[in-house]
């Protein structure tokens, strides 16, 4: 059973490799009569028997017509399904415990004439073991009334790189006799960040200092002490920052910028040699601190033992820190 599953998954990987964009065609569409299609065929058999027994040509004609319709429907549902073009959009950052909203753009650059019709069903293709852990609902999208992008929800339970299962997309259009489906995989490097747990902010002054000399959170970190440079004045800045001398020289309103002292740049540190339970808790707390400090635009570094990120500020830095926390203990390649 396991072998079979592995074989199918290998086969799928070869047949429908992960990509940013999928255009459905004969290579990735599967099609088979639905349950209703089976019922429909049974009806045809019944009509055939009745028509033969009563020697009723009209009933036989009806039976053959329905049979032919079944055949034609095969093509019609394939053609409709093959009009679908999906590409993956950028997803927002996501933390453990949140739902990942995976945006999918359906036929975003195709004119209206070649749009597919009917209802589409999106579902994550989960293994048996995953199924018990992850509850995902089927997403139904009526292609005739929808707004791009289609957003799929996927609950994130573990931190780290997210291995998103394949997305099963299926449709019963036009008459429900056939089910067209495909298992799409998308290229994504989605990192699920650890769940932030609120705590006090502990910044150590030195990257490798043994003692835990921390700086109190909430102290004014954007210092007044050292003048660093001048900048065009923006409405709302305190008037006492304005470099009046420069104004007097006729250089316009300029405000003085100060930076905090060097020793106030803090390091977030992960205590090593801890049991697993505490480790997760600490990582979560660190995550919270990273988010808080970034919000306050404070310079900080992150020391995780095997990974060290130099103090910096800004979006990229925050991302780097959160990624490192998410991937701990592996160092980022």
């Amino acid at each position: 059973m396991k072998l079979l599953k592995k074989l199918t998954s290998n086969w799928l990987n070869k047949r429908i490799p992960a990509a940013q964009k999928h255009k459905l065609n004969h290579k990735n569409i599967f099609i088979f009569p639905s349950k209703f299609g089976g019922l429909f065929l049974a009806l045809c058999v019944l009509l055939f028997l009745l028509g033969t027994n009563y020697q009723n040509n009209l009933m036989l004609l009806l039976c053959y017509f329905l049979l032919a319709l079944f055949l034609v429907n095969l093509l019609a549902s394939y053609i409709n399904f093959a009009r679908i073009e999906l590409h993956q959009g950028k997803s927002a950052q996501v933390f453990v415990g949140d739902n990942l909203h995976l945006p999918l753009w359906l036929n975003s650059d195709v004119d209206n004439k070649h749009m597919p019709d009917g209802e589409l069903y999106f579902k994550f293709k989960l293994d048996k073991q995953n199924k018990s852990q992850i509850k995902t609902a089927m997403t139904k999208v009526d292609v005739n009334v929808y707004t791009n992008p289609i957003s799929l929800n996927y609950p994130c339970t573990n931190r780290g790189a997210l291995s998103l299962p394949r997305i099963t997309l299926s449709s019963y259009f036009p008459l429900g006799l056939f089910r067209c489906w495909t298992h799409l995989a998308f290229n994504n490097q989605i990192i699920v960040y650890p769940e932030p747990i609120p705590c006090k902010i502990h910044l150590s002054s030195h990257p490798h200092s043994v003692e835990d000399s921390s700086v109190q959170a909430g102290t004014e970190l954007t210092g007044h002490d050292d003048f660093s440079h001048l900048k065009a004045y923006q409405a709302g800045e305190p008037l006492h920052h304005v470099a009046w001398k420069q104004v007097a020289k006729g250089r316009g309103m300029v405000s003085k910028q100060f930076s905090s002292v060097e020793n106030q740049i803090g390091w977030l540190k992960l205590a090593t040699n801890q049991s697993n339970e505490n480790l997760e808790l600490d990582i979560s707390k660190l995550t919270f601190q990273v988010i808080e400090l970034s919000r306050e635009q404070q310079k900080f570094g992150l020391d995780l033992g095997n990974t060290c990120i130099a103090p910096d500020v800004g979006h990229a830095h925050t991302q780097a820190c959160l990624t490192a926390l998410a991937l701990f203990p592996q160092s980022k390649a």
Partner: peptide, 9 residues
Amino acid sequence: LSLQAAPIG
């Protein structure tokens, strides 16, 4: 669809 199916039927 019906027109397509009719000749086959």
